[in-house]
Structures are given as structure tokens and as C-alpha cells.
């Protein structure tokens, strides 16, 4: 990406906050200077200003109901304070950790001392950790206006397989293989999919590491 492209991208991403007037002075100057020479960003600025005006004015502004103070106060009687002291939380954490360690030790005693698992085989099974891709079990919801053919086209574009349709919830469940991602990258991936025309929402239901059936066979 060239320097001018980088400047364009940075300024373009800051435009909404230029419009809502919350940028720091140096950022505001930076965006203003870019706007003077970029027609595309000036065009986008107009769109954002219209968006802001419409959101603030709200063509469907609701008539605010009267606050129900008495109802709120009556609910306080049944509400418990959810904040536990750090000491209590700490005790829970210690208890949970001790519990987890105990279970792990018990498992080791039973499995290893019983010679049911060879340590070398266990090492082989875990040496497959250098994975570069993962299987993401996802749920996809489409806009109602999207036809079957377009849904299949979108699913194919995502490389989705094992597609099943959840008729009750009008969504699709599928497996997508993609590079292993951090949480932030996964969020960005989700947003990219959700920004595709026709896609209403995507949610990741489960992650699955690739399983090497050869090493699994060797354990058996």
C-alpha cells in the first residue's frame, strides 16, 4: 500500500468522528487536509452527515413514556447485589483451581499408572500443534429477500461444507475452513461476512482443530 493510499485509508476511517466533532485537533487537521484533495472522501462526508442528521432527528422519534419509578423501587426489594467481594471471588477461584488440579491428577494416576496410554504415543498425538487452519462451525442467517440460488452462491463463496438448514430458525449451519485466527481477527472475519450483500448475521458456534486420523489410529 502506497503512502497516499495509507493516508486515504486512515482519513477515511476517521471521517465519522470528524462528522460528530470528537476528533483530537491534530486528527481533525489531518482529515481536513485530506478532504481538500480527495473527492471520494468528500462524497463520503456528505453521506455521513446525512446519516448523522437522520439518526439525531429520527424520522420515527418515539413519544417517551412516563418513567415508572414506583415499579423500579419495588423491584429493588427482590434484587440482590451481584458484586461479590474480591476475597470471596478469590476463594472461589482457589477452590476451582484446586478442583481442576485434583481431577487432572486423578486422571493421570488412572491412565498413566494403569499403562493404558503410552507416553510416546501421547507425545505423537500432541505434536500436531503446528496447525495453520481451523474448522469453524458457523451459523449463517440470510436476509429474507435472498433466494435459494444466491444463498448457495454465498455459501460456496465462503467455501462452506457440511451445510445443514435449520428450518425452525431459518438459518444455516456449516463448516468453514480458514486460517487460525485471534479473537479480534475472528470478529473482523465475522464482520466481513456480515457485510456481504444478503447476509444478515453470522455466528461461530464451535471451533475444531484438524484431526490427524493416522496418529489417532496409532493410539488405537
Amino acid at each position: 500500500m502506497s503512502e497516499s493510499e495509507q493516508v486515504h485509508r486512515q482519513a477515511s476511517l476517521l471521517l465519522p468522528w470528524y462528522v460528530n466533532e470528537t476528533l483530537a485537533e491534530d486528527e481533525r487537521d489531518f482529515v481536513r487536509a485530506h478532504l481538500a484533495e480527495c473527492a471520494e472522501c468528500r462524497d463520503d462526508l456528505g453521506v455521513l452527515q446525512t446519516m448523522r442528521e437522520s439518526v439525531v432527528a429520527g424520522s420515527a422519534a418515539p413519544i417517551v413514556p412516563k418513567p415508572r419509578v414506583a415499579e423500579l423501587l419495588s423491584r429493588l426489594n427482590g434484587a440482590s447485589d451481584v458484586q461479590e467481594s474480591p476475597f470471596v471471588l478469590g476463594r472461589w477461584l482457589i477452590a476451582a483451581t484446586i478442583g481442576a488440579i485434583s481431577v487432572a491428577l486423578a486422571w493421570l494416576v488412572v491412565e498413566v499408572a494403569g499403562n493404558r496410554v503410552e507416553p510416546t504415543v501421547f507425545e505423537t498425538a500432541t505434536s500436531m500443534s503446528s496447525v495453520t487452519t481451523m474448522d469453524y462451525v458457523v451459523r449463517l442467517d440470510f436476509d429474507d429477500s435472498v433466494g435459494e440460488a444466491d444463498r448457495e452462491r454465498i455459501l460456496a463463496a465462503l467455501g462452506a461444507r457440511d451445510v445443514t438448514r435449520d428450518l425452525q430458525a431459518s438459518g444455516y449451519r456449516a463448516v468453514i475452513t480458514a486460517p487460525a485466527m485471534s479473537f479480534a481477527e475472528l470478529q473482523q472475519f465475522t464482520e466481513r461476512v456480515e457485510s456481504m450483500d444478503g447476509v444478515q448475521a453470522m455466528g461461530v458456534l464451535a471451533l475444531q482443530l484438524p484431526v490427524d486420523t493416522r496418529s489417532r489410529d496409532s493410539v488405537q
Partner: peptide, 24 residues
């Protein structure tokens, strides 16, 4: 419960409103 919209800006606000509904 909606208040009467301002007719002058209704068209623009409608597309923004519709657009907002279509966003994730």
C-alpha cells in the same frame, strides 16, 4: 407510539432508517 415525522426530511430519513435496519 411514534411522533409525527417531519415531512420535509422524511424521504432522506426513511432511506437512512431502512438502511440502518438492513445492517448487522
Amino acid at each position: 407510539h411514534l411522533a409525527a415525522p417531519d415531512a420535509a426530511d422524511l424521504e432522506t430519513q426513511n432511506w437512512v432508517h431502512r438502511g440502518l435496519q438492513s445492517l448487522p
